[in-house]
């Protein structure tokens, strides 16, 4: 299977800004069954794009725009080849827990076991752990499959109920959230079992996924847990799925804060608003022109962008953190 992904981001500024610096993590990874065949990043105003690999092997592209500008456009296009996944068993052998502990002891997995910025065992999370019965039982895979489903069932997917830097407690209180929250909660629950678990940022191709509820036209996020003999296995609690051919991975991290699709700063006294469009198209051969990209026009900001905007008006520092894209 081949995918063509187009990910368009536009920042609007209420007043001209200058010396902006932006980092993007949109380059699909090449590992396992996934191979990134082509990646293009176009930026306006024109800028020289630099790239580096972060400590988790993600490709990070960054660029600066020194001159005054009112708008920043980022267009990332990639072509990914995905090999078919073998079937994942429904469970593992009885001694899988011991095997897992031995592997964790041998390897370098602490990063993905210790609490991180967003995925931490808060009292509310521990309550959920109790409710889900998330203690070591059965075998790790069977347990995680069950937790994935129960998490999906106990929290509603409702866009715009949380923001990009919401702690998991927000979603836990409201029982509502977006994929970023689902992933963070899943990670915290899984780490609490002593299983290494990490955050995956990427895209979802929806064809063939019938009960999927995550949004189109946005990036996606899920969790990966380390399981004996299987390695990293992706769990997508938002859609009650195991991550397979339709889950295209761009970056992995301890949680969202390691892998935001965009992050930036600029100078100038301006509020920002952001619009994102994503299109993922699939084909059996290499890559036809498929989708049209549509951006909302400047007047019709999504509701949450305007809300963010109003609060950021209060900040009068000359140097500002750029808006970041929440993973929905």
């Amino acid at each position: 299977m081949y995918y063509r992904i187009r990910h368009r981001t536009r920042y609007y500024y209420s007043a001209p800004v200058h010396e902006s610096l932006t980092e993007v993590r949109m380059h699909p990874r090449t590992e396992g069954r996934q191979r990134c065949l082509d990646y293009q990043l176009a930026v306006t105003p024109k800028a020289r794009v630099h790239v580096y690999r972060d400590f988790l092997g993600n490709s990070v592209h960054h660029f600066g725009v020194p001159a005054s500008h009112n708008e920043l456009n980022i267009m990332a296009e990639s072509v990914v080849e995905m090999k078919d996944f073998p079937d994942t068993p429904s469970g593992l052998a009885a001694d899988a827990w011991d095997e897992l502990d031995a592997e964790v002891k041998r390897g370098d997995y602490w990063e993905m076991i210790l609490p991180s910025k967003f995925s931490r065992p808060t009292p509310l999370l521990l309550e959920l752990v109790d409710k889900l019965g998330a203690v070591r039982r059965d075998d790790p895979l069977r347990l995680l499959r069950e937790l994935n489903t129960r998490l999906h069932d106990s929290i509603d997917y409702v866009p715009e109920t949380t923001t990009v830097d919401s702690p998991i407690d927000d979603a836990l209180k409201q029982r509502k959230g977006v994929c970023q929250d689902f992933a963070h909660i899943m990670i915290a629950v899984v780490r609490n079992l002593g299983i290494p678990c990490r955050y995956v940022s990427g895209y979802l191709h929806r064809s063939g996924i019938e009960h999927g509820r995550s949004r189109e036209n946005a990036t996606h996020a899920w969790a990966e847990a380390l399981l004996p003999s299987l390695g990293w296995v992706g769990f997508d609690p938002t859609n009650d799925l195991l991550a397979r051919e339709g889950h295209i991975r761009t970056a992995v991290g301890r949680d969202y804060s390691d892998v935001p699709p965009t992050r930036g700063v600029f100078k100038g006294d301006a509020a920002t608003a952001m619009a994102v469009a994503v299109s993922v198209t699939a084909s059996d051969h290499l890559p036809p022109e498929l989708a049209e990209l549509v951006l909302p026009d400047e007047q019709s900001f999504p509701h949450d962008v305007l809300a963010l905007n109003a609060t950021s008006d209060k900040m009068k520092e000359w140097q500002r953190a750029q808006e970041v894209q929440q993973q929905q």
Binding site: L21, H62, G64, R263, G264, V265, E317, Q319, A321
Partner: peptide, 14 residues
């Protein structure tokens, strides 16, 4: 502030 704490203006972004 691009890499570490983002709530500071003491350092140098980039």
């Amino acid at each position: 502030s691009l890499v570490f704490r983002s709530d500071t203006i003491l350092g140098v972004p980039g």
